[in-house]
Computed example of a mutant assay.
Amino acid sequence: MPSGARVEQLGLATRDEVRGCRLLLTDAISGSSDGSLGTELRRQVGWLSALLGNLAHHLADDTGARTHLTLAVDLGERTGEPTLAAWASGALAMVATARQDWRHALAHAEHGLGHAPDGLRRAQLMGWAQLPALAGLGDAHQVDTVLEEADRILESAGEMPGRFGYDLAEHRLHAAEANLTLRRYDRAARIAEESIAAKAPETPGWAAATLVLALAEAQDQPADAALRALDVLDRIPAARLRATARSRLARLNAKLAGTDATAVRDLAQRLRVLPAPIGEDGRATA
């Protein structure tokens, strides 16, 4: 099993390789005189750009994420690939949500829904992109309406594995976060537990759902919430912590500030000495 540092190096190598493939295909497009070949290459560049934008987001490169995802949306629209345009729009909503820019997030989500095919792709855009934005805007009624429809679609459409897919665990994660944003802590905790149960331990999805559960518990069970976060830090090396996990840890630490409990103090200390994420050049970013 590779070490945490080796895993991070592999992730950086993958990102560089995707960028290299994208540049290679871009050169091929510019030199292609075959219209159908050019369209297919543009479609592939679009999917590579979508993947790179997603990677950039998880490495806390907000500018890079927006740049690559915007290109992916454009290429999806120009090549007649609605699934690409929808997915990349959803990812742009995710990036805006991370900034708490709810109105732009909702606009991206609605743009994506305008392209999304019926079935699982529509449920994905509703759960992944529309739901967090509506929760951020405080529209609890619309959150419940969207979640009810997305649940129905997911029950009949099944799941799709992979980076561009969608499954029950991810859907439950977004539902839990929406309820957390609306301060429905008991409901958020229950749904987060469902997401945890559907994920393999020590995966990024498991860490995300576990930290959402900790955030939901922090209101009434601060020590338990801190212990849950410490468990994540014990199981996942710092080099493998996504930017989204770090953000949830920071939110939890702020929420627990002032609580007099050993676990809370231990968590604060662990986060103070947590190594900074590694950038593209292999160096710490802070």
Rank of each mutant, 00 (worst) to 15 (best):
A91F: 09
A218T: 12
R270I: 01
D220E: 11
G38F: 05
L241G: 00
G46T: 10
P161F: 15
A223R: 02
E40W: 07
A207W: 00
P2V: 11
P277N: 07
S30G: 04
L12H: 11
L75A: 14
S33M: 11
D266P: 02
E40N: 07
L230C: 12
R103V: 07
L173K: 00
E40C: 03
L41F: 11
V73G: 04
L147N: 02
L241M: 15
R187H: 10
A175C: 00
T14N: 14
R22G: 02
M126R: 01
A254K: 13
A263P: 00
A5P: 13
A192N: 06
E202W: 15
G138Y: 01
R265E: 15
M126K: 06
L51Y: 04
C21T: 11
R22T: 09
P222T: 11
L271D: 12
A91G: 03
S89W: 10
E280D: 09
T70G: 12
V73F: 09
L23N: 14
H171Q: 07
Y185N: 06
R22M: 13
A239F: 08
V18D: 11
A150Y: 02
C21I: 13
Q142K: 06
A257S: 13
Q44G: 02
E40D: 10
S32R: 02
H68R: 04
R184H: 12
R6N: 06
K255I: 05
H111Q: 14
A197Y: 09
D167G: 10
A250F: 05
A150M: 12
L41M: 15
A105W: 00
G90R: 02
V73L: 09
A60R: 05
Q130H: 00
V146K: 07
L252H: 07
G119S: 06
A192V: 06
E8I: 09
A60T: 08
G76P: 07
L215I: 11
I278L: 13
Q100A: 10
A56Y: 01
C21F: 14
R228L: 02
A286Q: 15
A197C: 08
L180R: 04
D167Y: 15
P204C: 10
S30R: 13
E149T: 09
L10P: 10
L24H: 02
T262G: 13
D224A: 12
A178W: 02
V7A: 10
